Amino acid sequence: MIARASIRLISWVVLAYLVLPLVVILGSSLTASQFLTFPPRGITWHWYQVMLSDPSYVAAFSTSTLLALAALVLTLPAALALARYPFPGKRAVTAALMAPLVLPHIVLGAALLQFGGYFGLTRSFISLLIGHAVIVSPFVLRSAISMMTPEQRALEEASYDLGANPWTTFFLVVLPRIRSGIVTGSIFAFISSWINVELSIFNTTADLNTIPVKLFNYVQYTIDPTIAAVSGATIVVAIVVITILDLTIGLDMLSDRS
């Protein structure tokens, strides 16, 4: 009984330690003062209005979101193909796609900058997209391969035998069975793309910026509650997305299938 109570107490202490920084950020974003402070000195939405009225922040949010989504769209078919079809050199290709897990992103960013220079893609959206596709591929690949079991392949063959075409088989047989794995991999991939600074900073410009690089450059010259407001907005978006996933798919299903 004492051991169980101790474990529960330790769990709550650890949870509070993890949640406290989020509370500080959200509180600091609502302060009425001109500098970061917690507890907040008054409550105001002014700093969120400053963030939304700044076109550079809106553009940075849009660029980061578009990069993450486009990288997932490019990576997912490759992950499914590697999980389903045998071909010569498959292990080498899989190992190459998994390599970003152990390679520093700053090295990948520098290499991508030099690589893009040969093709005139330096500091462009395409260059950023290639880099983000590289860093998200391991997450999508791991989740897709884990879901493509022999039983899954047998269900596909049964669907073909019953007269279904490839598109019908994919949407009605394959996708429902691997949905939780794809969502799990997509979440980690999206987070990895969204918070990346090391790779992105080599390929951004004043007009083409991602939100983490925008914040990195901003705090070098100015520290005010706008930073907390931007961080608070990302926290709220993450909470909303997780809540929607829990209501539609179920977080327990995602954890069981991943």
Rank of each mutant, 00 (worst) to 15 (best):
P176V: 06
A83C: 00
I201K: 05
E157W: 12
T184G: 05
T226F: 03
R153L: 13
S193E: 04
Y221H: 13
Q152V: 14
P150E: 07
M1V: 08
V237H: 00
Q152I: 05
S200I: 04
E151N: 08
L121S: 11
T226L: 15
G27I: 02
L30M: 08
H105V: 04
S62F: 15
A95R: 09
N203S: 06
I145W: 06
T63H: 00
L162A: 01
Q114L: 15
V13A: 13
G163T: 11
P225A: 02
V58C: 05
L15T: 11
V134F: 15
T226V: 13
V24K: 08
Y48P: 00
V219C: 07
A71Q: 09
F87P: 08
A228I: 01
Q49G: 13
I249D: 03
G131E: 04
N217W: 15
A96Y: 03
L215A: 03
D161Q: 08
F188P: 00
S127H: 02
V134G: 10
L247S: 14
V241T: 06
T149L: 09
V140H: 12
I242Y: 14
T226I: 07
A5L: 12
I7E: 10
V14N: 00
T222P: 02
L36T: 14
I43N: 02
M1S: 14
P77R: 02
M148V: 09
P150I: 10
E157Q: 08
I130D: 12
L72F: 11
W194E: 08
P39S: 14
L67C: 14
Y221V: 11
L9Q: 06
V93G: 01
L101Y: 05
A59L: 09
S159H: 13
N165S: 13
E151M: 10
L66G: 04
A158E: 07
T169C: 08
W167A: 11
R153Q: 06
A16V: 01
I135K: 14
I242T: 09
D252P: 02
F61C: 15
S258P: 12
A78Y: 05
T122A: 11
S6H: 13
D207G: 14
A83K: 00
T234I: 14
A78V: 15
Y17A: 12
K90V: 05
H105Y: 13
V24E: 12
E157V: 14
M51F: 12
L112G: 02
I145Q: 09
I126H: 03
Y48I: 00
V50M: 06
S180E: 15
P77A: 01
P100R: 05
L22F: 10
T222Q: 12
A68V: 09
N209K: 06
W194N: 06
P77V: 02
P100E: 05
G232C: 04
T65F: 13
L245P: 09
